[in-house]
Design a protein around this nucleic acid. Structure first.
Lengths: 218, 218
DNA sequence: TGTACATCAGTGAACGCGCGTTCACTGATGTAC
DNA sequence: TGTACATCAGTGAACGCGCGTTCACTGATGTAC
């Protein structure tokens, strides 16, 4: 195999790493134009290949989008897992997870968009990869994003939440994170002097949600 | 003008209420298939009219989508305004607003989708109709959804939020509402025995957010 | 009441386009001998 | 080391389709006289 010189770079008849390059191109176009605006023709062109070449690696358009979404689930779980195992106090790690979530949505809009708009592939395992029971990936059981969140909550507040199910809080935290991330992506988050940025918004909001539960205020 | 017999009903050469019927059809298809999946041809067919007829009433596809979004902003503000002026205590009205928001997103997915994905029309007034300064509509200044939310907060907690800007809380509440609504629409909200439904989720979350601010916990 | 006419909402045929996908093919690669 | 061969990634031409949009038109409506 020829030396790999970057996803959109090519010399000669064989591309060398077409599958990865196509995924990367799709990710980029989905980020720029949304799921509907993404076309196979553009992706192939960017990569320097005929549209038909795609069919050596994917069943079709939907399969490529699904693959992007799948990579997204993986990357998000990886980032959250990394934050969960980072240094510092449990609260610091928990805060870092929130930042990681927002940063992921901002830095990888292609992933994020694909993750929430990929049609459930018929026959495929799970269509809610955030919180579905962890799926095996290459033998070793992979954690999912939602499980990491629940675990972080348990670590950070080992005394538990009296009457409240930890999953309850986790859903609240996730919904707030998702809301902030999508409003921000849509350019709808009010911004201005005296108004917090999204990280501050999430940090303060999560603390309030957790403390509300801690005090049985819910 | 002939008697109006329903949006998708027609007799004779002239439709009678084509503009409204097209908006309604667009709303329905956007709800079913998303912005990308909506086509003029389908809308015209449903209404019983040639695609070209659309151009008597709209500049083109984008204008129709924008009109749907605009109706959505209007309808949402109307519903929130109604909740804001309903009976009961201030807290009850505030809670009702949250329910109204979630119900709107669920009952009018066409509106909700259009509102968040309409491209900012160049030359048009505002591209963030939730919180942009209230626009005149037919002479009388119309309230926007975000202003209603801030007002509800002020009514419900007249003692104010010590160190915290009320808009801060409003953004948190809105982000949580939006997150819950969109996760629910995407079928991603975990559901099961012991887990709360979305209304309970929002109610508890909002209370926690507000109390967090009230106690200066933020 | 009847007729001529202006208005304009909707027709239907056509357009150019770009899409996703297929197919028989070709040329580069690496392996067996 | 050299040659024959199997493999298969990518080609390029073609497909059928449905899209948004245009245009000269037609037929229904309502108004002026």
């Amino acid at each position: 195999m020829r030396h790999w010189r970057g996803p959109f770079d090519r010399q000669g008849y064989h591309h060398g790493n077409l599958k990865e390059a196509l995924i990367e191109a799709a990710q980029r176009f989905i980020a720029e134009r949304g799921i509907g605006g993404f076309t196979l023709a553009d992706a192939a062109k960017l990569v320097g290949v005929t549209p038909a070449a795609l069919y050596r690696h994917f069943r079709g358009r939907d399969a490529l989008v699904a693959e992007v979404a799948f990579r997204g689930y993986d990357e998000l779980a990886k980032r959250l897992g990394r934050a969960l195992q980072s240094d510092g106090t449990a609260l610091e790690r928990f805060t870092r997870m929130g930042e990681a979530y927002l940063a992921f949505a901002e830095q990888e809009p292609g992933f994020y968009t694909a993750m929430f708009s990929a049609k459930p592939t018929e026959g495929e395992a799970s269509c809610s990869p955030f919180w579905a029971k962890a799926v095996e990936s290459g033998g070793k059981p992979a954690g999912n994003a939602f499980d990491f969140l629940v675990k972080a909550l348990a670590d950070t507040f080992p005394e538990g939440f009296q009457t409240v199910d930890a999953r309850f809080i986790a859903i609240e935290v996730w919904a707030l994170s998702h809301g902030i991330a999508t409003l921000d992506a849509a350019g709808q988050l009010p911004k201005g002097p005296g108004l917090p940025d999204k990280y501050e918004l999430l940090r303060a909001g999560v603390l309030a949600l957790v403390h509300g539960a801690l005090k049985g205020k819910v």
